[in-house]
Amino acid sequence: MTISVGFLSAAFLLVLQETIFVASAFDPSPLQDFCVAVDEPKSAVFVNGKFCKNPKFVRAEDFLFRGLNIAGNTMNKQGSNVTLVNVDRLPGLNTLGISLARIDYAPNGLNPPHTHPRATEILVVVEGTLLVGFVTSNPNKLFTKVLNKGDVFVFPVGLIHFQFNVGHYPALAFAGLSSQNPGVITIANAVFGSDPPISIDVLTKAFQVDNNVIHALMKQFKA
């Protein structure tokens, strides 16, 4: 069987395009030992959304964050608190493609349905009992599990997921994320609390409910 050079070239370009597309979905690999993020552009190099501090002036403190032993304030509507340690709070994370979060939950506390557009999340329960889950892209299948102390669960990148404290006592979990700046889109806030707001006509048709329901939801999530 003879395969033309043109066919091979086209196939190679197709594979190359797919590879580039997949690679672009994640933080780029570092090309140096570190690139400590700095807000001052003087004598700095711009890498991955941040300026790099001159290596001569880098200190151990640039790779240190203190305070994850302190419980977050869960006195809010959701009964949860996320303490995120990303590149904005730990400059040494820049270009390393990783971040960390502490999540505190009051009894019946919820980390509401949300997505991380740039990161997979792996969660470990330190205290308490959590109902967790994520929903796949179409068809929307739910994967859910009840986690206890020491259990680990992973939420694939970009998928809607949640955690709910089903225990009678406060719960605590830590999460690792595969991006220095994973981002977060809380579904209800994004849909009903955007600025400027999404058209009422769009939302009533999307959710198949009366205008009054949409108005009531918008009041709850208004910034």
Rank of each mutant, 00 (worst) to 15 (best):
M1L: 13
S4Y: 08
L8Q: 12
T19H: 12
A23P: 00
P28W: 01
Q32A: 10
C35E: 06
A37N: 03
A37W: 08
A37P: 08
V38E: 11
D39A: 10
V45E: 09
V45A: 03
G49A: 01
K50G: 02
K50M: 06
F51Q: 00
C52D: 00
K56T: 12
K56P: 04
F57Y: 15
F57K: 12
V58S: 02
D62A: 00
L64K: 08
L64D: 01
L68P: 03
G72D: 11
G72M: 13
N73A: 06
M75N: 13
M75W: 06
K77T: 07
N81M: 15
N81D: 14
V82M: 14
T83S: 12
L84T: 07
N86I: 08
R89T: 11
G92R: 04
T95I: 06
L96H: 10
G97V: 06
R102D: 08
R102C: 11
Y105T: 12
A106I: 13
N108G: 10
G109Q: 05
N111G: 09
R118T: 00
I122V: 13
L123F: 11
E127A: 14
E127S: 14
T129H: 13
T129R: 15
T136L: 11
S137E: 14
P139Y: 13
P139H: 12
F143L: 13
K145G: 03
L147P: 04
N148L: 10
G150L: 01
V152M: 09
V154Y: 10
V154E: 15
P156V: 09
G158Y: 02
I160V: 15
I160L: 12
F162I: 07
Q163E: 12
Y169I: 11
P170E: 07
L172C: 07
L172G: 04
L177I: 01
S179K: 13
N181F: 06
I187N: 02
A188C: 04
A190P: 04
F192L: 01
G193Y: 04
G193S: 05
I198E: 01
S199D: 15
D201E: 15
V202C: 09
D210Y: 06
V213R: 11
M218L: 06
Q220P: 02
